[in-house]
Every structure is written in structure tokens, then in C-alpha cells.
């Protein structure tokens, strides 16, 4: 047995090193966001020193009539809304492509897959010109509508539907007189639940981190998501150094929703990845 223990410890050691590697920047951010007046070079970099996190937080929430909280709310609205609807659309589309045979199915699927290859950044400017034509630029919809689309989610949806929804079950539902739509919502959605969580998480992360689209679309600070808001502060740190502390503590606070989403959904996610890997 002793011979087997060594590799296990070695594996743990490697894991520990990597954990440390990934957590150190986060720890640094935590310490830095607590520094008084954003003096990151003052005192120790990785130990609480001049710690004034509470003060920084209240500065952050008060600055410019609490614009930061507004940005957080915007981010959550864009992200949760788009991820929820986008997941449903992608899941339905993937399901249809997996379970129904029709002409042009593969062509359609390949076109959608091609969409994965087009970087969202490249689409931002054309989208801006289109949204300007219909007078929707610089509105909530300018960011929300394009965020609904998720070709990678369609791909995942198809793989999971093929793997987790047996044709026999659908056949049985049909014989019992269930319509296709009803079969989807009562039967398939449950079987595909882990897949939906996976797609939701991927989509959530993608929309949360989408930066170029709001940068180009939005001119009104009150519509900004938190990423763009923090960025716009950060561009002014040179001439307005008082913003540095706000950028640091704001970056730290803006991590929270992402952490919550992952911690609460990771259980489903893991089983979803597992289900996809068997077939």
C-alpha cells in the first residue's frame, strides 16, 4: 500500500501548487481592495496592511450616486436574462437538430457551428450600425438582444440531447398522445437538465465577460454593465488617481455573482459534463 500512497501525495501536491497559483491573484486583489486610498505599493502586498475595506466599500457604493450598484444590477439583468432565454433557445435548437430528421439538418448545424468561429468582437461594429438604423443603439436592448444568441450552446444541446433523450421514450410519449412541444417541456427538458445548467453557465460567463459589445453600443453610463463601468474608471486613473481604489474594490465586488453562480450550479454542471462524456 505504501507504494501507492506516494503518487497520491504527489498528485495532491501538484493540485495544491496549482490552487495556490490560481488563488494568489485573487488574494492579492482582496488585499489590494482593502488598501486605503488605493495605495497598493504601500505596506505588504499579501498581508492586510492599512486595511480599510469597509471604508473603500462605502466609498464605492456612494460614488456618483451609487452608480456602481446600478452597474451591478445592469450586469445581472443582461446576464441572467440573456442566459436564461438564450439557454432555452439553444437547448430547443440543439434538441431539434438531434432528434428530428429533416432536409438540410446537417447544413443548418454546420452553419450554427460556423458561428462559434466568428469572434463576438468582430460583430460588435456591424451590430452597432444595424441597431443604429432601427434607433435601438444606446438602449438596454442593444446589449440584451445580441446576447441571446449562443451557437456553442446549440452544439452542446445537440450532443446532450442525443446522449440523454432516448428515441424510445419519445416514441412512448407520442403513442400516449403527447404533442411534440409537450414532450419537450415535460420529458426532454428534465432529461436534459444537466445540459441546460452547463449551457446556462457557459452563457452566463460569456455575457458577463462580453466587453466589446457594450463598449461600442452604449454611451449612457446608466446602462453600462459592471465590466465597462470599471474599465471606464480605469482609463482615467492617471489623471484622477482617486479612482484607483474604487477600481480595485469594484473589481473585487464584481466577482461575487460569478462565484455564487458557480458554487450553486457546479453540482449540476459536473453531472452534465459526465453525461456528455459517456457517449
Amino acid at each position: 500500500m505504501a507504494a501507492f500512497k506516494l503518487p497520491k501525495y504527489a498528485a495532491m501536491l501538484v493540485m495544491a501548487v496549482f490552487t495556490l497559483y490560481f488563488l494568489t491573484p485573487l488574494w492579492w486583489l482582496f488585499i489590494a481592495s482593502g488598501k486605503k486610498d488605493g495605495q497598493v505599493t504601500e505596506g505588504h502586498a499579501l498581508l492586510p496592511d492599512n486595511f480599510a475595506l469597509g471604508e473603500n466599500l462605502s466609498d464605492l457604493f456612494r460614488y456618483n450616486d451609487g452608480i456602481f450598484l446600478r452597474w451591478m444590477a445592469n450586469s445581472i439583468a443582461y446576464t441572467v436574462g440573456a442566459a436564461a432565454i438564450g439557454t432555452l433557445l439553444a437547448g430547443m435548437c440543439g434538441y431539434a437538430l438531434a432528434k428530428y430528421v429533416f432536409r438540410g439538418r446537417e447544413l443548418l448545424f454546420n452553419i450554427v457551428l460556423g458561428g462559434v468561429l466568428v469572434p463576438a468582437t468582430a460583430l460588435a461594429l456591424p451590430l452597432f450600425l444595424m441597431f443604429s438604423k432601427v434607433s435601438l443603439a444606446n438602449t438596454f436592448w442593444a446589449v440584451f438582444l445580441p446576447s441571446l444568441v449562443n451557437p456553442f450552446g446549440v452544439y452542446l444541446g445537440r450532443i446532450y440531447a442525443a446522449a440523454s433523450v432516448p428515441d424510445e421514450l419519445m416514441e412512448a410519449a407520442r403513442i400516449d398522445g403527447s404533442s411534440e412541444v409537450r414532450t419537450f417541456f415535460t420529458l426532454s427538458v428534465r432529461l436534459m437538465a444537466p445540459a441546460f445548467v452547463t449551457i446556462f453557465l457557459f452563457h452566463f460567463v460569456a455575457v458577463w465577460n462580453n466587453f466589446m459589445l457594450p463598449l461600442i453600443m452604449l454611451g449612457n453610463e446608466r446602462l453600462f454593465p459592471v465590466t465597462l463601468g470599471l474599465y471606464s474608471w480605469n482609463t482615467q486613473v492617471n489623471q484622477h488617481p482617486e479612482l484607483r481604489a474604487l477600481v480595485l474594490v469594484g473589481a473585487f465586488v464584481s466577482l461575487a455573482p460569478m462565484v455564487i453562480a458557480f458554487l450553486s450550479l457546479q453540482r449540476f454542471w459536473r453531472s452534465g459534463l459526465g453525461a456528455g462524456s459517456i457517449k
Binding site: 461594429l125 452597432f128 450600425l129 443604429s132 443603439a137 463598449l215 461600442i216 452604449l218 454611451g219 453610463e221 453600462f224 465597462l228 474599465y231 471606464s232 482609463t235 482615467q236
Partner: peptide, 15 residues
């Protein structure tokens, strides 16, 4: 929004 070279100038041109 962000400063000029941070995106606002590009936005002006687009607009």
C-alpha cells in the same frame, strides 16, 4: 464613458 483613446473616440466615429 471611458476616456478618448479608451473607446470614446472610436464610438464618436462609429456614431
Amino acid at each position: 464613458g471611458p476616456n478618448g483613446n479608451g473607446g470614446t473616440y472610436a464610438n464618436f466615429f462609429n456614431q
